[in-house]
């Protein structure tokens, strides 16, 4: 029952599936979570994947069923499930293999993105949440580490760690306090569209603002007041109302939140265009100045 009780798989280890007769070669360990360890693997026929190994068969079966359920018709932000199997290797008795999702965690890339790209990523995350919601589930454990952004693929947004996914109406099982609307006093800890909308709003707000050190010792009401003040002081004034609306659960679904993000981002884009125009004017003036000077020198030396 202790995490990390089974030793890690070494690079190059072959894992043979008892049921499917497939074999996978371990390339590297991608990470260790509360529920198990994820490895990058290659199947014997060359298919690349990510292998999640858990202590018990129940956890593996549970996560697999979640991946199957959020798969959706039009592609899921979550990894596509590949195979569920057992092996005789005690280090990987129970496991499943899924699509290997590229990209880096949101908290790592956020500060390197331009304002405009940040808004694009924000918008794409909310649209991805919407597609999860279409399957009747909420993501719930919305934290920056669970959102991957692939900068080499046009900032593609993907989700990892399906373990928190919960059917609408049920109690949330897995969450991260700072991204949890209930922790901040804004919502019940029950899976819904509004829970996810508030959770992603909190996540984005806290990418740019550090939480107080002793937050965990504060009563909920005090946390809520602190967060409201934070939103009141958001630098881009036009966004404040949207954040308040997202936190208070006033958006009925992720789609309407996404539309507001798009509308507000268009404002950012227009401002960007204005800056482009001034830049052009500056370069034009500079070029014409150089040209006139050159022409004047040329006339002076009777070159022409």
């Amino acid at each position: 029952m202790t995490p990390g009780a089974s030793p890690r798989l070494a690079q190059g280890t072959w894992i043979s599936g008892k049921w499917t007769r497939h074999r996978w070669r371990v390339r590297q360990c991608l990470g260790e979570g509360a529920n198990g360890t994820v490895y990058s693997v290659v199947r014997d026929d060359g298919l690349i994947g990510a292998m999640k190994v858990c202590e018990g068969s129940a956890q593996v079966a549970f996560e697999w069923s979640l991946l199957e359920r959020v798969k959706g018709a039009a592609g899921s932000p979550f990894p596509v499930p590949q195979t569920i199997d057992d092996s005789d290797d005690p280090r990987a008795s129970y496991f499943y293999v899924m699509e290997r999702v590229g990209g880096s965690p949101l908290n790592g890339v956020w500060s390197q993105l331009s304002l405009r790209d940040q808004k694009k990523v924000f918008y794409d995350i909310v649209r991805s949440l919407e597609s999860v919601h279409r399957t009747g589930h909420a993501f719930c454990d919305v934290k920056p580490q669970n959102i991957l952004v692939d900068t080499s693929r046009g900032l593609q947004v993907r989700f990892v760690d399906v373990g928190g996914v919960t059917p609408f109406g049920r109690a949330v099982r897995q969450f991260t306090p700072t991204s949890d609307p209930a922790y901040w006093g804004f919502a019940e800890r029950r899976a819904s569209c509004t829970y996810d909308v508030a959770a992603i709003a909190l996540t984005i707000l806290l990418l740019e603002n550090a939480v107080p050190k002793n937050l965990a010792a504060w009563p909920m009401q005090k946390r809520k007041e602190w967060m409201k003040r934070l939103v009141d002081n958001v630098a881009e004034g036009s966004w404040r109302a949207t954040y308040h609306k997202a936190l208070s659960g006033a958006y009925p679904d992720a789609g309407s939140f996404a539309e507001d993000i798009l509308r507000l981002s268009d404002g950012t884009r227009v401002k960007g265009a204005k800056r482009d125009w001034t830049a052009k004017l500056m370069w034009a003036s500079l070029a014409s100045a150089c040209f006139s000077t050159a022409w004047a020198w040329a006339l002076f030396f009777h070159v022409v």
């Binding site: 129940a58 079966a61 199997d85 129970y94």
Partner: peptide, 14 residues
């Protein structure tokens, strides 16, 4: 549950 094929275990998990 361990004697069942993994795909069937997912039904138990649900």
């Amino acid at each position: 549950a361990e004697d069942l094929p993994p795909a069937e275990r997912t039904r138990i998990a649900q």
